[in-house]
Amino acid sequence: MYDRKTIRRRRAVLALLVVSSVVLLTASFGGNGGVGSVQRGVFEIVSPIQDVASRSLKPFRDLFGWFGDTWHAKGDNKTLVKTRDQLREQNGSLQAEVRKLKEQYGINRVIATANIGNLGPVEARVVVASPTLLFQKVTINKGAGDGVRSGQPVVTAGGLVGKVDVVVGGSATVTLITDPRFGAGVRLAQSGITGTMTASGGDPEDLIVATTKQNAPVSVGSTVVTRGTSTDVRLPSLFPPDIPIGKVTTVDDAGTDTQRVHVKPFVDVRNLDHVMVLTRDAATVP
C-alpha cells in the first residue's frame, strides 16, 4: 500500500502540471512572450520541411487520385454501357413494332381494295419458311381452331401470298404463288385483259400469265390482280377479285395466241413474317 507521503507527493506533482498547463495556454493565446517566440521559432524551422515533404508527396497523391478517378470512371462506363444496351434493346423492340404496324397497315389496304365479301381476315405469323430454293411453302401459326380451312387465300402487305394447303389444329401450311402447281385466274387492272397465272418453276421473282385473247395489248408496268369468281358459278374462284399480285416486266411473243406475260410479284416470298388468311364462315364451308 502507498503511504501518505507518497500520495501527497503525487498530488503536488499533479497540481504543478495543471498550473503549468494553464500558464502555457494563457501565454499561447496571448501571442506574446517567450512561448510565442518559441512557437514562431519552431514554425520557421518546421515550415520548410513541411513544404519539401508536401512537394515530395504530391506525385503519390496525384497517383492515388488518378487510381480513384479511374475506378470511378470504370464504374460510370459500366453504367453507361448497361444503359446503352437497354436503349438498343428498346429501340429494336420499337422498330419491330413499327414494322408490324406497317405490315398490318399494308394488309388492311390490300383487304380494303379487294372485294372479300363475307371472308373474315385471320392474322397469322410465319413460323417455318420453305427449305427449298423455289420457296414453295411456309407454315403459319393458325389452324383449324382459328377457322382456317384448306384452299383459303393468304395475303400480306404486298398482295397475294398463296393459299392454305394442309390444316391441323393450331397451324397450317401455305402453298405460295411461286409453287409450280399454283394457279389463279388474273386480270390486268388497266386493260381488263384476263388470263391464268402460274409460277415459272425456277425464279421466285417471275410469274407467267397466259392471256386468253389473241392480239390482246399488254403493256409493261401494268398491274396484275386476281380475277375473282368467273361468270360460271359452278366453278367459283378461290380468290376474291382485285387482290394485287404484281407488275408486268416483259412479254414473250407479243400479239400472238401464245404470248406469255412475265410478272414480278409484289410479295417477296423469301421474307414473309405476318400474313392474313381470308377465312370463310364455318357454316358456309362444305
Results as ranks from 00 to 15, higher is better:
T70D: 02
S222E: 13
T196K: 08
R125C: 00
Y2D: 09
K58P: 00
T229W: 03
T284I: 00
K137C: 03
V225W: 06
S171F: 02
D281Y: 04
M276C: 08
G195K: 13
D51Q: 09
D232V: 10
V98F: 12
T196E: 04
G159E: 05
V52D: 11
R125M: 03
T83Q: 09
L133I: 06
G34D: 06
L207P: 05
G170H: 07
L14N: 10
V42P: 00
A184R: 02
G145E: 10
L16Q: 12
I208G: 03
D273V: 08
A144M: 04
G41T: 11
A282W: 00
L87T: 08
I193F: 10
G41V: 01
L101R: 11
P236M: 09
D85Y: 07
V263H: 04
A129V: 07
F43H: 03
G41D: 05
D252G: 07
T70Y: 04
K163I: 01
A254N: 10
L160F: 05
P131T: 03
G120V: 15
T256V: 01
E97T: 14
K58V: 02
G147N: 06
A157I: 03
N32W: 14
L238G: 09
V174M: 11
V277P: 02
T211Y: 08
K247P: 00
R88T: 04
G106A: 09
L278C: 08
Q152R: 00
W71I: 08
V263K: 02
K142R: 15
G117T: 01
I177E: 07
P286G: 06
R270G: 13
L57F: 14
I193V: 13
N271T: 12
G65W: 05
V209M: 13
D146W: 01
T223R: 13
D273I: 02
V285L: 02
R227M: 10
S20N: 14
A112W: 06
V275A: 13
Q86G: 13
V261S: 11
K264R: 15
G117K: 06
I116S: 03
A114W: 02
S130K: 09
I45C: 01
H262C: 11
V126H: 06
I193T: 05
N77T: 09
V267C: 14
D85W: 05
V166D: 10
L25P: 06
D232F: 09
Q190S: 15
T284L: 13
G255V: 01
V126R: 06
V269K: 00
D257V: 00
V224R: 00
T231D: 11
V267K: 13
V209F: 02
T284K: 15
T175W: 01
T156A: 10
L80I: 10
V154A: 09
D203L: 11
G195E: 10
G147P: 06
T229P: 08
S219H: 08
Q86W: 05
A184Q: 07
R99V: 08
S20T: 15
V35R: 07
R8W: 11
V285K: 10
H262Y: 12
V148F: 01
T279Y: 00
I111G: 04
A27V: 12
M1F: 09
P153D: 02
G183L: 02
E97N: 09
